[in-house]
Design a protein around this nucleic acid. Structure first.
Lengths: 363, 363
DNA sequence: ACAGACGCGGAAACCGTATCCCACTCCCAC
DNA sequence: GTGGGAGTGGGATACGGTTTCCGCGTCTGT
């Protein structure tokens, strides 16, 4: 007596239990369930009945081990709570589910250690791809770190996808899905300038954050194009959050008043800025105009509704997953990774009603 | 010649590759890596060097199959984008990562079919628990469906956790993490009534949504306690979104003007309502007061900042995971599932500045 | 110096599934 | 009636680890 599991007891039913109970072989059950092999109608019925009776589901781990298995994509994100990247995650997850893929999610909380740990964890899981969301901090070490991730994942048959970050330098096996960050900032700043604003408070974000760098560059280019001097005193840096927007405006009103518009690096920053202006008794947009960036739902829910730059976050997520899926299909070329490595999506200004020409008050 | 994989080629390195290259047995490598067995320092060093050289990670599927493996919790959610439930997800994920657990995430998009498919998928994955987020639609079929999920998962050694929904009836193996929904609504409505408001526009949400039912009940109880008649004409139903808030107020201003306050079922609905009032030339809170529910970041970012009910969403997520983890430790009692089955967290009103006593204008 | 005990390395069984390959059956055509 | 072909069932094996059991070597105590 081999004393196997006393049937029907604890744990889940195995394919053997099903086979035994249906009086067929294990292989037949597997074939009925995977459906990629012809079986008689009678067999199918018998097996399916037992499957329903036992409420049997195949063990995904065993299945993956044996070669099959549902592909899984890992989503690594700083903070699920951020509206912008939640939308990207939604795009990835939605596209994944559509193809029957699974989505693992991990949050890094801006901690490089945790990021490393998570990438390794995902590597263990044998994920088809790791999608890294969010602007990166452009430390020296960053490029090396990411390159190592990329090669490591590539060697394990997986793939690294960077969303919303600039592409990696050199011949690194990674895909980047990006948006025209600088172009959006250029257009947004131009909008303000063409409305007549000349003294603009700029809140671009942290200087190490690649996203912030791009947005600032775009704004600068616009100022140059309009021949308007870019006053460093009117640039205030800080994190992409509500509090920063509030405090920056508060401080600017104190130290460098006279600006007629605020160019915020983010809708959330713009919201904080708007609140601070109100608290100081200024009206938006009558006294001061404000623009944001991202076009998250908040932008259209503020009063006045925010003129901002639309970024196709959810589509970026979908595109990222498609890139991975396509690459997985086209295993023919083997060592490719040439095209489709860097996808850039467009942005555009959404005009609402937080901008007016400046009141004629400075002299 | 057994013609195994030509070492160092495609795919990931196996434990055998490591063993071979280090000149030790497979078992030794496993022991070094899992660390649950004494090994000599020399062996450890030799193995670890090869592990680093090969950038080896264990195959999670194989490990799970063999009994070990990292526990995984599945988070099923209607829409990641919703701020409230994103916070719950964050709580679950954070607590999971803290314990070295993994988080799978799936979105159901309010589709029962997809929910079913996802629960089955998660069952295949052998997850330690399935956490279902969000208010439920109280159809007749719902209770049966959930009970089936619960039993099914329980039989497979997993567990169902309902967050933000009322508990299941009968002896169902599921855990519920809830908050004092009705109590919060009672307190919120009382706040409005004690400020002197008598004509209150109520936007409770969809009548089939359990969350909405609770919030409406709480409000009604408060009205009764204050001896204020609850006017059905001033109740407008609809989805929990910005547009509904806007349109409901628009319609109410047309059909049943004279209300001095809006009791919104959600902060987002409140935001819509606020916008509509402004569009109609009314000031908040001077002409009309508004209160929300949920206390998402948006609430404090609006102008004026919204008085609302704080719901400990992130903590609910943490509590949910802890409940699962505890249950998993305490396998001693075997057939328990008695206590800890229904956890209720408290809510409280957060007073900001969207409420004022009604202007003396009605006669 | 010898016996016993302890520590550590290695072979093999097993986890649950998919699949290759072979054998068997049934049917049809010659 | 028999041979061949098509179609279906079943046994064996691989997937990558973990773990148990066993054996050998060395250290210690008397």
């Amino acid at each position: 007596m081999s004393q196997r599991k006393t049937a029907g007891d604890a744990g889940r039913a195995t394919i053997r239990d099903v086979a035994e109970r249906a009086g067929v072989s294990v292989a037949s059950v597997s074939r009925v369930l995977s459906g990629n092999y012809p079986v008689s109608e009678d067999l199918r019925r018998r097996v399916m009945k037992v499957v329903r009776d036992l409420d049997y589901v195949t063990n995904a781990h065993a299945r993956s081990l044996a070669g099959g298995g549902t592909p899984t994509v890992a989503i690594l994100i700083n903070n699920i709570t951020g509206a912008a990247f939640a939308h990207v995650a939604k795009g990835v997850e939605g596209a994944a589910t559509l193809r029957g893929w699974l989505s693992l999610v991990g949050t890094t909380g801006d901690d490089p250690e945790r990021e490393l740990a998570l990438v390794n964890l995902m590597r263990q899981q044998g994920v088809a791809a790791v999608v890294l969301l969010g602007g990166a901090y452009d430390y020296d070490e960053y490029q090396l770190r990411m390159a190592r991730f990329a090669r490591s994942l590539d060697a394990a048959g997986s793939h690294l996808v960077l969303v919303g970050r600039p592409p990696l330098e050199g011949d690194v096996p990674a895909t980047t899905v990006d948006y025209d960050n600088e172009g959006g900032a250029y257009a947004m700043a131009s909008h303000l300038l063409s409305a007549g604003h000349r003294e603009v408070l700029v809140l671009p974000g942290h200087s190490e954050l690649t996203t912030a760098q791009g947005r600032l560059r775009g704004a600068q280019r616009a100022f140059e194009a309009y021949g308007v001097p870019f006053a460093p005193a009117l640039v205030r840096r800080g994190p992409y959050d509500y509090e920063h927007g509030y405090e920056a405006v508060e401080a600017a009103l104190e130290e460098t008043p006279g600006f007629t518009a605020v160019l915020a690096g983010t809708d959330v920053v713009a919201a904080g800025a708007m609140q601070a202006l109100r608290a100081a008794g200024l009206r938006v947009p009558e006294d001061v105009s404000i623009v944001g960036y991202d076009d998250i739902p908040l932008a259209s829910q503020l009063t006045p509704q925010l003129t901002t730059v639309h970024v196709p976050y959810e589509e970026m997520g979908r595109v990222a997953l498609r890139a991975v899926a396509d690459r997985r299909e086209g295993v023919s070329g083997r060592r490719k990774g040439r095209d489709g490595d860097h996808l850039v999506l467009g942005t555009h200004v959404v005009v609402r009603n937080s901008v007016r020409p400046p009141a004629t008050r400075r002299g």
